[in-house]
Design a protein around this nucleic acid. Structure first.
Lengths: 146, 146
DNA sequence: TATTGTTATACTCTATAACTATA
DNA sequence: TATAGTTATAGAGTATAACAATA
């Protein structure tokens, strides 16, 4: 059993890390990822994000999806190969650009996305549980300034 | 050359991701990591964090450092092996607990930490550049609620 | 019994470089 | 020339399982 993650243990001197806004965000992220992994079955955060983006932008190609997710074509390949092996995503050769693949969710992909979305929504509500609606709005607004 | 990362491209439908505070934090994190990598030479974010924590808590042992950083002993080993190979960190057998190592920075580690801290401070100031001091304080306060 | 360090092992994520087919 | 997909390769980060030494 992994030890429980303490956000900012009081008995630890964080040195300069305590002054860095980048580290404060990283620190929040660690706890969020752990809760995601414990809450969502069979999908990692990048896998889930890819499913949502393909569903919301059907026919998007691999390179563009990589750009959006902040990675590159080669890394995107590995991620899509796994989603394809899970039968969740389909690569359809584009008619308008013979170099490109248009990405689509399979029927199973749609179902998995629906069930995962419910798990993720519950997870997100839990991690945001200590924040009011107004605080969440403020946080969202401030994060967009990066 | 990697494409520039756009925080929230206007022509993309983010679907349910746009409603998740966890994804908003993840999104900010992507840009921050890219700027860190471009700004700080020879150290990754976890490596830098470990140096700061060892410096601020000299004699701390490996397991405790792993707990603080949100990882485990085995993962900590790999990270410390690399810092030791770089001659930045030393493992000193503890006199009070013969199972444990006390972690210390070497002289080179101290110097590297000092130069990296300057790079990281500049990086952090850059990524926070669009936020006022009051906004940063609010953001820090809200992030601690996770 | 529990904890510390350790090793073996594996999976995920990410990146660079080079190739091919097409634009 | 540039771009999309692809493959090979490698380096980080993270995790589980097991073991020896020590608490």
């Amino acid at each position: 059993m992994a030890d429980k993650f303490e956000q900012w243990p009081a008995d630890v001197d964080f040195g300069v890390l305590g002054d860095l806004i980048g580290y404060a965000i990283r620190r929040a992220q660690i706890g969020i990822y752990k809760d995601f992994d414990a809450s969502v079955t069979r999908l990692t955060p990048p896998l889930f994000a890819a499913l949502v983006l393909i569903d919301a932008n059907p026919g998007i190609n691999q390179s563009r999806l990589g750009q959006i997710m902040g990675t590159n074509r080669a890394a995107m390949m590995a991620l899509l190969d796994r989603l394809a092996a899970m039968k969740l995503v389909r690569r359809v050769p584009s008619a308008s650009d013979k170099r490109a693949n248009e990405l689509q969710l399979t029927d199973l992909g749609q179902k998995r996305l629906a069930s995962a979305s419910a798990e993720v929504a519950a997870h997100d509500a839990r991690i945001a549980g200590n924040l009011t609606a107004a605080e969440l709005k403020t946080l969202r607004h401030l994060l967009k300034k990066f």
